[in-house]
Nucleic acid binder design. Structure first.
Length: 104
DNA sequence: CTGGTGACGTCTT
DNA sequence: GAAGACGCCACCA
């Protein structure tokens, strides 16, 4: 099977350690395509239901969840992160200095 | 092939 | 700090 962009993204997201978070732009940069940050998010949106991914560990460059605060997705993602001991500042922002994934 | 869409990022007011 | 404009390009109809 040919490797599509989506599959590369999914494969990378699977490597994010528990308790850490990464931004869309950061993931895109790891794939050698810093300008495709938007497509990282798009790829996650296209994730099949039978594929289990730690998608909740992916946030935007602002350290915020990209969903609306009123959405069910936002609440679920936040809950998943807090379950991994990831705390929020001001109730809705993540401190990237502390929880940012720093791969070597 | 063409066009619309969009879990984003960066620059400019 | 906040808000708007623009660029980016994979995927789908």
């Amino acid at each position: 099977m040919k490797s599509t962009w989506n599959q590369k993204v999914w494969n990378l997201v699977k490597t994010i350690p528990r308790g850490k978070v990464a931004s869309y732009g950061q993931l895109a940069g790891m794939l050698g395509q810093p300008r495709k940050a938007r497509h990282v998010g798009y790829a996650l949106h296209q994730t099949p239901e039978d594929l289990v991914l730690p998608w909740h560990r992916v946030i935007n460059a602002q350290g915020r969840i990209s969903f609306s605060e009123h959405s069910q997705e936002y609440l679920m993602q936040k809950a998943m992160l807090e379950a991994e001991k990831v705390t929020f500042q001001d109730g809705n922002r993540i401190d990237m200095k502390v929880y940012g994934w720093r791969p070597k």
